[in-house]
Design a binder for these strands. Structure first.
Lengths: 148, 148
DNA sequence: TCTAATTTTGTATTCATTACAAGTTTATCA
DNA sequence: TGATAAACTTGTAATGAATACAAAATTAGA
């Protein structure tokens, strides 16, 4: 029997204990915000997260959403996505890392796998790289199909 | 004798005609802003550009800097760099493409060469990629030296 | 030169984000 | 359990980057 859980399975099981493992107190608001990010891999803005949760948590303040996301970013659970627009977007940070693709037609943002290690060049070896981000702009498969 | 000029040489020679080639009227303000971006590959903010030019062009308005940069971005002469902070940064767009490296210690942003074609994976072949951006966060060679 | 089109400029406005302080909840320990 | 401190949440006010807009200035074409 395989008792070893991978990252995804662990997340599904128990967000509160995951947060505590990361040194974050598992308040109701934080759990619900993290859960929302897990279930909505659409790179939501603060406003989108707030609007989605306000009916369930009537006391919720936008400031709490900001505070929580900034905490998650600081603790490296969540990544800021600044692919476009004036609003910051947020995405669960997975250990493997992935890139983002912004469709200029339907405006959706996709996660795309990226062979990040292949990016490195000789020149970069002089630097100590702690994090890397890749994003693309273009037209997604769905829109390409619609166009043809 | 070699009369073929590469991109860099062409730029040095004649910004006004370069702008006109790109379908942009070569006003004094636009020339000076483009020239500033050429000579200062430090990914400046609007405020930095404005402050650098205001003594030479006392009539200059921040709105003009915004307008001009948005025009340059639209015409694909200049690239928006959103590697950090709340202010947009701007960088001359070179045809080869390059990545950016943000030093967490000295806060400078470096241009780094990137083997962009190696990033592409099978999954991405379904997408029509029009532009790609890569950036890194870490510690630059200078700061690594200082630390040791 | 005259007129229309384009560009620049200054001011007012928008809106995402942060600052801050008060209120609420949670943890700790006697 | 109850008292006290610490941590978290909330609402309001403030900040500041970016845009909207209209008037003034400049440029282009006839």
């Amino acid at each position: 029997m395989n008792t070893k859980l991978d990252w995804g399975e662990m997340m599904d099981l128990n967000i509160p204990s995951f947060l505590r493992n990361q040194g974050i107190k598992a308040s109701y608001q934080r759990i619900r915000i993290y859960e929302y990010l897990m279930n909505n891999r659409t790179h939501p803005t603060v406003a989108e997260i707030y609007n989605a949760l306000i009916t369930d948590i009537p006391s919720l303040s936008k400031t709490t959403v900001y505070n929580t996301l900034n905490l998650f970013v600081e603790k490296e659970l969540v990544e800021e996505v600044t692919i476009e627009g004036s609003e910051m977007r947020y995405d669960i940070k997975d250990p493997e890392g992935h890139g983002h693709f912004k469709c200029t037609q339907c405006h959706r943002i996709f996660d795309v796998p990226v062979q990040i290690e292949k990016i490195f060049t000789d020149e970069l070896s002089e630097f100590h790289v702690q994090a890397q981000f890749v994003h693309f702009v273009g037209i997604c498969p769905d829109c390409l199909k619609k166009n043809s």
